[in-house]
Design a protein around this nucleic acid. Sequence first.
DNA 1: ATGGTTGATGCATATCATGCATTAATAAAT
DNA 2: ATTTATTAATGCATGATATGCATCAACCAT
Lengths: 299, 299
Amino acid sequence: MSTLPDFSLLQSFVTVAQELNFRRSAERLALDQSALSRRIQRLEAQLGYPLLERTTREVLLTQAGQNFYNSALQLLDDYVQSINDSRRIAEGRSGHVRVGYMAFAATELMPHAVARFEQQHPDISLALRYMRTQGQKIAIANDEIDVGFMIGPYDNSDCHSLLLSSELLYVVTPRSHPLLRKSHIEPEDLQNVPLILGDMAEWGEFRYRLADLFSRSGIDLTPTLEASNTLALIGLVSAGLGVTIYPESLVGFLGRTVETRPIIHPDYRSRTVLVWKRNNRSRAVLHFVETTKKQGTRR
Amino acid sequence: MSTLPDFSLLQSFVTVAQELNFRRSAERLALDQSALSRRIQRLEAQLGYPLLERTTREVLLTQAGQNFYNSALQLLDDYVQSINDSRRIAEGRSGHVRVGYMAFAATELMPHAVARFEQQHPDISLALRYMRTQGQKIAIANDEIDVGFMIGPYDNSDCHSLLLSSELLYVVTPRSHPLLRKSHIEPEDLQNVPLILGDMAEWGEFRYRLADLFSRSGIDLTPTLEASNTLALIGLVSAGLGVTIYPESLVGFLGRTVETRPIIHPDYRSRTVLVWKRNNRSRAVLHFVETTKKQGTRR
DNA sequence: ATGGTTGATGCATATCATGCATTAATAAAT
DNA sequence: ATTTATTAATGCATGATATGCATCAACCAT
C-alpha cells in the first residue's frame, strides 16, 4: 500500500459508521451522497478489505469496520490533540510551573522569586496557589504543584529542599505590656504569659514547630486563645488579651496597634524552604528553582 | 481549522524533519523539490504556526516542529497499526460472537441456536460461556459477551430482549410422595412441604423470581435444604428429603429416581430471553439474533 | 403492482497538486 | 571581493483527482 487513506476518508467513514445511512451522513459532511459513496469505496479500495456491508436499504459494519471505526476515532482525537499541543508551544507557552506558597513566604520570598522569574522567562507561565505547609507536602507528592514555599526543614528522600530563609521569631504585644521593658525576649520570659496563636487548621506546621522549640526549654506552649486569621489574631493582641509569636517576614506588615520584641535564642528561628520532587525533570521547573536560588538565602 | 492536514503532508514533514534538507527529502519522497516546498507551506498554513525555520541554506525545526514531529511519528505508526489490525480481522474469520448461556438454555435453546447458526454461517466463529443470569447482565454491559441466554424478562433500555421460551414449572418429587396423587399442582399445594432449591450463588435469579411468584400467592418460599449443583439437588430429592421446582426445559434430563408434576397457574412460568446491547452493530451478532429468532418462541 | 427511499454509476466540470523553468538567497571556493 | 554551486521559493501550464448532477437498480412499505 503506497499511500495512507486521507483524513477526509477517515472522517467520512466515522460519520457513516455512526449514522449507518449514506444520505444522512452526506448531509452531516456537507457533500453529495454520491461523493460520499465514492469516498467510502476509495477508502475500502485503498485498505484492501470491506468496512461496510450494504444494500440499498441497509448499512452494517463488518467486524473489521467496527475495529477500524474504534481506531479511527482514537486517531482523529490524538491528531487534534497533537496539533493543539504543538500550537501551545508555538504560541510561546513553552512551559508552566505550579507554585505553592504559605503565609510566611507570601510577603517577600515568593513575590520576589516570581517577579524575577517572569522577567527572565516571559515565555513560561506560572500558577500560584496559597496553601498551608502540610497541604503543599501532599500536593507535591500528588503532582498537583511543582514547587512549594513551606516551613522547613523538610526531610523527604523523594524531594529536593532549598533553604531560602532563616528568620528571627518576634513576640507581638499590646502597646502597653510588661515584656516591653526588655529589648529582647528569652524563651523563659514567656512562661505564664497569656498566648494567642493561630489555630491548628491554618497554622499547624508553625504551631507544631513552636511547641517543639518551647518544650525543649521546658515551657508548655498552650495558647489561651486561638484565631483563624491574622486580622483576628492581631485584633486580640491589640485588645490586651495576650501576646503572639510571629516570624520576621510578617513583622513588617503589622500595624501601629502592637509592639514587637525579637526572641533571642540560637534555635528560635523560622525557616522557609523551597521544595520540589527529585523526579520532576521539567526544564521550566528547574529554571524556576535556579532563579529562586540566585536570590540567595536570607538570614 | 476546517480540515486536518492530510497524511501525505505529515509524511512529507517527517521526512524533512529527519533530513533537514528539501532536496534530499524530495528525492526520498520521489517528487519535485518545489512540490515538497509547497506541501510544507500548505501544512504550516493549515496548522497556523511554523514547524521549520529555513533559509536557502539551512533548515531547522522550531520547538513546535520538534513536538509535532514526535507526535506525527506516533500517529503514523498508530495508523498503520490500526489498518493492519483491521485487515487481520477482515482476512480471518469474518466475525465472532461471544455467547453467554445459563442452565435452562443449556439443554435445547442454546444448542439448537448454535447448531443452526454454524450451519448457516460457517465463516463466523462462536465462543460459548456458561454464566448465570446476573453474570450475563454484567458481562453484556461490560462488552465481555455479545449475547446472552438468560432468565427473563429483562427490561434494560440499553438492551434488546427477545423472548425465546415461556415454560411451565414442574414440581420434582421422590418416587413416592403424597403430591403424586394429583395430576397437577397448584401453588397452595406446596404450603408446608419441605423444599430443596439450588443455592443463591448459582440460582439467584431463578430463586428471586420464584420467591416473587409464591409471595403473590401468600406462600413463604423458604427452602429447608440448598444444593450447589443439580446432581446434589436431585440426589436430595430422591432420598426423600423434600421436593424441588424445575423449569420444563430441564425436566427431560431427569433420571428415573424422581417423579414430576406440572404447576398449573397462569403466572407460574419460566421465561428465557436472548439479550444483546442496542448499540452492538456487529453484523455477526445481528445474524446470530436473526437465526435464533427464526427458531420461533417455544411455548 | 406501485411508490418512495437509498446506494451506486456515468459524465461533464471544477478543483487541486505537480513538474518544469526560473529566481533569489546564501555558503563555499577562488 | 568576486565567482560558483547549491538550495528553497515562485510563476505557469498541465495532469490528476474529486465533486455535483442526473439517472439507474434494488428493495421495502403500502
